[in-house]
Amino acid sequence: MAGKNQHVVQRDKGWAVKGEGNSRDTSHHAIQAEAAEAARDIARRQGSEVLIHGRDGQIRERDSYGNDPYPPKG
């Protein structure tokens, strides 16, 4: 069973990793790159996705680890 998708979101004092559906952040980081790497580590272990949000809150990047719903052909 796949784990929760991990979202990288901006906070007042930096960036946070938050599991989908969780009420609290998993971790806090000074820069977005650190938060993204932490989210990727969690997603690799859980076989889930990472969704990186920009400063405007919109998803700007997404990576799948594990069961990719749309694998490339050939």
Rank of each mutant, 00 (worst) to 15 (best):
V9F: 08
V8K: 15
H29S: 12
G47V: 06
R62Y: 04
V9Q: 14
G66S: 00
N5S: 13
S48F: 04
R62M: 11
A33D: 11
D63K: 11
R45I: 00
E20D: 14
A16E: 14
H7W: 14
E37C: 01
G14C: 04
G14S: 05
H7K: 03
R45K: 13
H28R: 12
V17I: 05
A35P: 07
V9L: 13
G14D: 04
A43F: 12
R24Q: 06
S48Q: 06
V8F: 10
A36V: 03
P71H: 01
W15L: 09
G74H: 10
K73G: 09
H7R: 09
A36Y: 06
L51R: 13
H7N: 10
A36G: 04
P69M: 02
K13L: 05
Q10P: 15
Q58C: 06
S27E: 06
N5H: 15
Y70H: 14
K18P: 09
G57S: 02
R11N: 08
W15K: 04
A43P: 13
W15Q: 10
A38Y: 02
P69H: 08
Q10T: 02
P71G: 03
H28V: 03
A30K: 14
G47L: 05
A43R: 11
H53D: 00
A36M: 03
R60D: 01
R40D: 04
T26D: 13
R44H: 14
I52A: 03
A30M: 11
K13H: 08
S27N: 01
D25N: 14
D68I: 03
S64F: 00
G57I: 01
A33S: 15
